[in-house]
């Protein structure tokens, strides 16, 4: 094996981000791992990924019912008490007050999707109140001919709006980062939609996180090199231990992609 290229000096690394879907304070897909006391506990999983060298974590509350707010806040507090890497929380955040509550519990960033489309002002209000680095806008896009349309409600509802135009608009409004999920690729493990990613990345001035379609290590390399992404996100691939963060990092280093190694 070639020696790893760890000599890249002062360089912003490409981030590798496990995503945890939670509902009612529990992780929906558990890590298949016997050494976790409770695989459904988001805090246990956060600790696990932290020890594996994850650069960041994303928690998405997939049900996001209003009576679940306190459970979510409690989870955020417990995660922030346990690990010392940045993490983003999304799902059902509809107001600046919702954002403030989650941030005060120790989250670093808030991800909004449907609520950003329904109330674009929420982006600028959030950026004004907490700084744009706190505001992640998630965009679910599905290919339509030569372009992509955006979807809300977890990809179920079509919105007649162009994904690239929407990306430019949300950055103008104050988004500090974009989380781009290809609804065509999501769940296929056939690779990210690099054309979509590159198109958006070239058209905005903020970092882009690639999501949807990761199946092997080459897909992550392609998302960075072809898709021009600043970070890569995956869920089940990590949860089911098909690939470890370390394996991706080593492959990145071999391909001269800057990566946090050793962490």
């Amino acid at each position: 094996m070639k020696p790893l290229n760890l000599q890249i000096k002062t360089m912003l690394v490409k981030r590798i981000i496990p995503c945890l879907d939670v509902t009612g304070g529990r992780v929906v897909k558990g890590v298949k791992f016997i050494d976790l006391v409770d695989a459904g506990d988001p805090v246990e999983q956060a600790r696990f990924y932290n020890s594996e060298g994850a650069d960041e974590l994303v928690f998405l509350d997939i049900t996001a019912s209003s009576d679940g707010r306190e459970i979510l806040q409690d989870m955020v507090r417990r995660v922030a008490s346990t690990i010392h890497i940045p993490f983003t929380v999304g799902g059902g955040i509809r107001s600046v007050e919702d954002m403030r509550e989650i941030l005060r519990c120790g989250a670093d960033k808030i991800s909004i999707n449907t609520s950003a489309i329904q109330t674009p002002d929420l982006i600028s209000q959030g950026a004004q109140a907490f700084g744009r680095q706190c505001i992640v806008v998630a965009i679910d896009a599905r290919r339509k001919g030569e372009s992509w349309d955006i979807y809300t409600h977890g990809g179920r509802k079509a919105v007649n709006m162009d994904a690239v135009e929407w990306a430019k608009k949300v950055v103008e409004l104050g988004a500090g980062e974009l989380l781009i999920t290809s609804m065509d690729s999501d769940g296929t493990q056939a690779g990210f939609d690099n054309e979509l990613l590159a198109r958006i990345s070239e058209n905005v001035s903020v970092p882009v996180i690639a999501s949807g379609g990761a199946g092997n290590v080459q897909h992550f390399i392609d998302a960075v090199k072809i898709g021009k992404s600043d970070a890569v996100l995956a869920a089940s691939l990590f949860h089911f231990r098909q690939l470890t963060i370390q394996e991706i990092k080593e492959a990145f280093a071999e391909n001269e992609i800057p990566v946090r190694l050793p962490y």
Binding site: K9, R15, S205, R260
Partner: peptide
């Protein structure tokens, strides 16, 4: 890209 966001040395 701005913000400068992530891990740097």
């Amino acid at each position: 890209k701005i913000p400068h966001m992530g891990w740097n040395n």
